[in-house]
């Protein structure tokens, strides 16, 4: 990738490519290590996904990047500004949609956005048009004068995204943006999120524990127990599984097994009177298999690896609903630590 931007002077090269840089970041709450020596970079204009179960350290990392928490060690920078030492510059460069709702329910949608515009010192002449644009973008312009407490979960989340964009941030953080939303609303929200980098020239850093949602990311980091296990594009991650799995049923499995092994030079296994093999390009293999076996083929199906499989392979466990409870314990732990800190 270095070659692609080689016409840029070195000082720009750096800032142009990686808008977020995290090096050896550690965050401890008392005895609990929430983030354990993680490093990664996020390229400008991409959607970066932080994937992992609840309590893995995703929100803690976001809070450090957003200048709300100071790391125990290591450093994080956004747009070249240090998240600890230059928090004011970092704050101007970022927008955030938190996991918990942070709108004022007793104000209207419009008033919430005005509040934000003033906080971020948006120029007077710019306030009106930007708020109007943002409300139109999330289809809430007609509801602008309604109190937020009358909004549905999906509307609130959309309004928060709109709010996060008012000050034209370079990076937009989305912490579990679809949490608690129904499937249809989730799908709508995703359609809208994938358009953001192009429409608003913004880099997206998002966390989720829904594996299927991470598919939209340009790059994914899988995090578990405070450590990053693997980073890559969704396809790269899936390739670690060894590719697609093709299942074939034929009238003569013995002959078919020999034919296919000769054809692709791979091992073919049999289970429940079904043959299966793994292949990096499963879809391209199917026509060849059918051509070779002819009429004896009864059925063929292709199973693509999911990010869930990747997570399973990397951590030895699935992201399950029970994980939520472990997340809650961490939250509780962090809270009691903060209480102690506040008093001491």
């Amino acid at each position: 990738m270095g070659a692609k931007y080689s016409y840029l002077p070195p000082f720009l090269l750096n800032s142009y490519m990686s808008i977020i840089k995290v090096e050896n970041l550690v965050k401890k709450f008392g005895n609990l290590t929430a983030v354990n020596d993680i490093s990664f970079e996020v390229e400008e204009g991409t959607i970066f996904g932080f994937l992992g179960p609840n309590g893995a350290g995703k929100t803690t990392t976001i809070n450090i990047l957003c200048t709300l928490l100071a790391p125990t060690s290591g450093r994080a920078s956004i747009f070249g500004f240090d998240c600890t030492k230059q928090s004011s510059e970092v704050r101007k460069a970022i927008g955030i949609v938190f996991q918990d709702m942070t709108l004022d329910k007793d104000l209207t949608a419009y008033e919430n956005l005005v509040f934000h515009a003033y906080l971020y010192d948006v120029k007077k002449s710019e306030r009106e048009p930007r708020i109007k644009d943002a409300l139109n973008f999330v289809d809430l312009y007609d509801r602008r004068n309604d109190l937020v407490k009358k909004f549905s979960g999906g509307m609130k989340r959309r309004l928060e995204v709109a709010r996060g964009l008012i000050h034209r941030p370079k990076v937009l953080f989305l912490d579990e943006p679809t949490l608690g939303l129904d499937p249809q609303t989730r799908a709508n929200l995703w359609d809208f999120i994938v358009d953001l980098p192009r429409k608003h020239k913004v880099t997206i850093f998002m966390t989720t524990h829904y594996m299927e949602e991470a598919e939209v990311c340009s790059k994914i980091a899988i995090i578990d127990n405070g450590k990053i296990i693997i980073v890559g594009t969704p396809d790269e991650l899936k390739k670690t599984i060894g590719g697609d799995v093709i299942y074939i049923k034929t009238s003569d499995n013995k002959r078919a097994k020999l034919e296919i092994e000769k054809l692709f030079q791979v091992n073919v296994f049999e289970q429940d009177s079904e043959l299966f093999l793994t292949s990096l390009k499963g879809d391209a293999c199917i026509p060849e298999i059918i051509r070779a076996l002819g009429d004896s083929v009864l059925s063929v199906r292709l199973q693509r690896p999911t990010l869930n499989d990747v997570f399973l392979k990397m951590t030895g466990k699935e992201i399950r609903v029970e994980e939520v409870s472990s997340g809650d314990t961490i939250k509780e732990e962090v809270r009691s630590y903060r209480r102690k800190f506040d008093r001491g």
Binding site: L68, R91, F98, D100, T102
Partner: peptide, 11 residues
Amino acid sequence: FGLMKEILVAP
């Protein structure tokens, strides 16, 4: 209930 976070991350 949230709004403080919005205020604290503002510049």
